[in-house]
Amino acid sequence: MSNGQETSQETFAALEALKEHYSLPSLTFSVPRQVQGLVLPVVIAVVWEALAQTGILPANWLPAPSVVVATLLELLRGGELLGHIGVTLARVVSGFLIGALAATLLGGVTGSSPLVRRVLDPTLQALRSIPSMAWVPLFLLWLGIHESSKIALIAVGVFFPVYLNLLSGILTVDRKLLEVGQVFRLDRVQQVRRVILPAALPSYLVGLRSGLGLGWMFVVAAEIMGASRGLGFLMIDGQMTGRASVIIASIVLFALFGKLTDLVLERAAKGLLGQRGIEF
């Protein structure tokens, strides 16, 4: 297997060299590989800015990037922005922790015990088919309009991807590795702890990352539906007061913080899986 990989890498390198050799003298100015992904967004921003400046785009619909940046700075100076960011982050993080913890416990138990799986999994799968937004009225009724209902909604969103990925990670553990455990006479508990859980880790981490993504999605929903603070509230505020730049600024912040929190998980995953030679 590793031989095959080496060979394909060699072939790839050879092809690259050929390309290099035969490539036509190009008109493109060379862009370092690492920042090639930034080219398109920059072009879009420049064109957008130009269209907005010349008045082709109506400023009240789609304000220029420079206006969005100005709005961000203005909000920041006003002192309210950090508060909104903090509130939203706190909701996502606590919802994520609660949802992921519950999913880890339940996924671990259902994965490890066929009996528990037969009893519990069908019910959880049935609950999964309820569109998560359908919980909103019930959560509002039970938990009120304040933090708890929002965090509960986020936790529900985070729960399912984590649960499903952990469970499938456990159930698809290579039978051949389990046999090695058998050969060394591991009992059920040791088999779980020393073979099954480490083997399921990559899938579990994928679950955590998609859970976090859903967590961000649900925080927007929760804050749009009724909040007096947070980035979602800021968007609604922008909509109510007719300031598109505020809405776009909030979108940018959501993207930024979503990416940052994902980066934290990605780094953690790399730390845990790098030794296995898995690209994450």
Binding site: V180, Q275, I278
Partner: peptide, 26 residues
Amino acid sequence: PGLERGVVFQEHRLFPWLTVRENVAF
């Protein structure tokens, strides 16, 4: 299975999350 009977399979079946030493000590 029994510890008096060691098995080597066609595929190495090493645990990818363990070092050589930890695999041998498994």
